[in-house]
Design a protein around this nucleic acid. Structure first.
Lengths: 217, 217, 217, 217
DNA sequence: GATGAATGAGTGTTCATTCAT
DNA sequence: AATGAATGAACACTCATTCAT
C-alpha cells in the first residue's frame, strides 16, 4: 500500500471519488482516468477490469475485517465454553458479567470499521453491481455459527441438531441484526469516539432483545 | 389493474422478470420488449420511461403501505394516549397487556406485505437507480415520530425537546430496526402464515430491546 | 377555411404553435395532437403527412402572394412599356414620377404580408425541412424577369440577349434585395402601419441603389 | 489543422459531405462514421458531440472572420474620424474619394470568404439546429455600431442618442444588407476573381442606397 | 509504463406513420 | 370521424475494454 506507484495511487484516489459519488454501476472509468489525469490504457495496466479497481479500494480493510471475525466469532467461544462447564444458568451469568467479552469484541470491530471508515462505507453502500453487493449477508453467514452456539447454550438446548425452524430463523435474524448494528453505527456516527459511546446503548438493545427471545414462551 | 390491456400486462410481466433478475439499472428495455413480443415503441405508448415502467409494478402496493403507515403509526397513538391519561407506569402497562395493539399493527403490515409480496421484494431489493433506492430510509423517517412519542412516554421524559443526542440516535436505530424486522420477514418467510408465526418471536426480540434501552443506566 | 371542421381547426392551431416554437423539423406531431386534445390518427384523417399539415398553414396566403406577384410583376409592365414608347430618358422619367407605380405595388404587397402575417413568418423562418425551405429564392426567381425588363430599359439596352454576365448578376441581386426588403419589413415591423412608414425609407434606399447601378461606369 | 490525424481528417471530410447534403439536423452520425469507415465510438474520441463535429468544420474560418470584423469595423473608423476633423461635407468627401477605404475592407472580407469558401457556405446554409443558426443576425449585430457611426456623421446628426426610431430601423437594414451582399457574393460567384469583379457593381448599389437614404426628405 | 486510438455492442428514447375498429 | 395501439427504424451517445506503439 505504501510503496505503490504514484500513478496507481492517483487512479485509486480518483476511483474512490467516482465510486463514492455514483456507485459502482454508474461510475465511469473514463471519468476516473480523466480525474486522475491518465488514459484508460494506464488503468488497465494496473487493474484487470472495473471490478478489480473497486476491489483494490476495499480489499485490505475487508481482509482485516474477515480476520477479526475469524478471531472473535469463530475460533473462540471460550466464554461460553467456560460457562457451560460450570453449573450456572447461562443467561444469568452472561448478565452478571455484563457480556464483558462481547463488549470487548464490539469495541474491536468498531475500531477496525473506523480505521478504514471510507472503504467500509464504499463497500456497504456503493457496491451494487460487484460481487460484494450482498456483503451484508455474506458477513451474517460468517457469524451465524457463533450466535447459534450462544443461543443453544443460553436456551439450554442439547445439540444444534435439535434446533427448530423457528429457532434457526430467530438466530439468523439476531445475527443479521448484530451486523446491522455495526453498519448503523458506521454510517451514522461521525467518528470512533461517538461510535463507542452510542455502542453502549445499542448493546442494551441487543442484549435486551436476546433476553426477550431466550425467556420467551 | 384488472382491466388492463393484454399488451400492457405482458409488458409488465416481462418487466417484472427483467427487473427481478438484473435490477433496475442493468435491466434492458429491449429485452423486456423482446420477451413481451413487442417493439420498444409499444412500451413507450404505455409508459413514459424506464422508471415509469418500474413504478407501475410497485405503485399500488407502495401506496397501500404508505396508507397503512399513516393509519397505524401517525394518526393514532391511541394506546399510548390512553395510558398516558392514567396514572400508571407506561412500560409496565404495555408489558401487562402484551403490546397487543402493536402486535395487531404488525399483523396488518405483514398481511399487506405478503399480499403484494413480489412487488415489495422488487421495491426493496431491485430499485437502485430509481427514486426508490432509499425507500428503507424514507419509511424509517415516516415512522420515527411515532417511536419518538413512544420513547418519550416510556422513559417518562417531559418533552421531545429534552431528548439528548443519544436518545435521538437510539430512537432512530429502533425505528430503523423495526422496519428491518418487517423486511427480514418479507425476504425470509415463504408465506404469510410462516411470517405471522415468526413475527411472534421477532416481537419478543424487539420488545426486549426496547426494555433493554428504557431500563438502561 | 371558415367552414372547416372544429377538429381540423384545433389541429391547425396547435400545429401553428408547435411549428412556430420549434420549426418544422423539430416539431413533433405527437405534441401537436396532445396540444389539440386529439390522437395522431385524427391528424392523419385530415392531413396526409407532416408536410401537408405545414402546407395547410401557409397555403392560402402563399397562393395570394403568388397571385399578387403575377398581377404586379409579371402581367403588367405597363409603366415601363408606356415610357418606352416615348422619347425620354427612362431613368429620369422614373425618378420624375417618383416610382409611383412601384410604390403602389409595394404597398399592396405589404398589405398582403400583414394580412397573413403569422403565416408568412412561419413560411419564411420555420420552413426548413419542407419544400419551402428555399421559398425566398423561389420568389426571387418569379420577379427577376420583371426587374430584368426594368433594367434593360433604364440602361437603354436593346435586348435581353445583350445582357452581360455582370448585368445578369446584378439584376439577380437587386431582385433578391427587393424581396429581402419585404421580408425585413415583415419581420421587423410590429404592424402594417409601421411597415408602410418604414417602407418609404426603404424605397429611398432601393431606388438609390438602382441609380447607383444604372449610372455606374 | 495540418498535422491532424488521418482518422480525424476522414471523419471531418465525411461530416462535411453529410452536413452539406442534409444540413445539420438531418445529418446522421452513423452515416458519417460509415462513410469514414469507422465506428461511432471513434467519432466520440475526437469530438464531444454532433455540434462539436460541426464546429470543427467552421471554427477556424469563423474566428478569422470575427477577427477581420473586429479589425475593420470596430477598432478603426479612421476614414470617418479623419473626415470629421475637417470641415467638409462628409458625404461629398466619401463620394470624392470613392469610398476607397470601404472598398478595401470589402476586398479583404471577400478574400477571406473565398479562402474558406466551403466552410462559410456550410455555416451560412446548413447550420440550422446549431448555435450558429442565427449567424447572419449575429454578424449584423457586430457591424451595426460601425454603420450607426457612419450614418450619424453622414446625416450630420449630433449624437447617437438623437437617432429616431426610423433612423435606427434603416441603419439596421443597411447593416443587414451589407452582410447580405457578402453572402450573396459568396453563394453566387464561383471564385474570388469573379467575386471581386461583381463586388464593384454591388458597391455601386450599396453606395447608391446610402445616398438615397442620406439625402432623403 | 503509459498513450492514443479504436472497437462494437449497448443504452434509453423519439419519431412519423399505419391501421383495425 | 376519430381512437388506441403498435410498428420499426432511427437517433445521439456511452460504455468497458483492447492493443499497437
Amino acid at each position: 500500500m505504501e510503496n505503490e506507484k504514484e500513478t496507481k495511487k492517483k487512479l485509486k484516489k480518483a476511483a474512490f471519488k467516482e465510486f463514492s459519488e455514483k456507485g459502482f454501476m454508474k461510475a465511469s472509468l473514463r471519468n476516473i482516468c480523466k480525474e486522475a489525469g491518465l488514459t484508460t490504457g494506464a488503468l488497465y495496466f494496473f487493474f484487470s477490469d472495473k471490478e478489480d479497481l473497486f476491489d483494490s479500494l476495499i480489499e485490505e480493510p475487508l481482509k482485516k475485517l474477515n480476520a477479526a471475525i475469524e478471531n472473535h466469532f469463530i475460533e473462540e467461544m471460550s466464554t461460553s465454553k467456560k460457562m457451560a462447564g460450570e453449573n450456572l444458568n447461562i443467561a444469568e451469568m452472561a448478565a452478571a458479567q455484563g457480556f464483558e467479552d462481547d463488549k470487548a469484541i464490539a469495541r474491536d470491530i468498531v475500531h477496525l470499521l473506523f480505521e478504514y471508515r471510507e472503504s467500509f462505507e464504499l463497500l456497504l453502500t456503493k457496491a451494487q453491481g460487484t460481487r460484494y453487493e450482498n456483503i451484508r449477508d455474506m458477513i451474517v453467514d460468517k457469524v451465524e455459527d457463533h450466535y447459534t452456539g450462544l443461543y443453544v447454550m443460553m436456551k439450554g438446548i442439547e445439540s444444534h441438531k435439535k434446533l427448530s425452524k423457528e429457532d434457526k430463523f430467530i438466530i439468523h435474524w439476531m445475527s443479521h441484526d448484530q451486523i446491522e448494528v455495526f453498519i448503523h453505527i458506521l454510517l451514522h456516527c461521525k467518528n470512533e469516539k461517538e461510535a463507542l459511546n452510542q455502542m453502549e446503548y445499542m448493546i442494551d438493545y441487543i442484549v435486551g432483545g436476546w433476553f426477550g427471545v431466550i425467556n420467551s414462551k
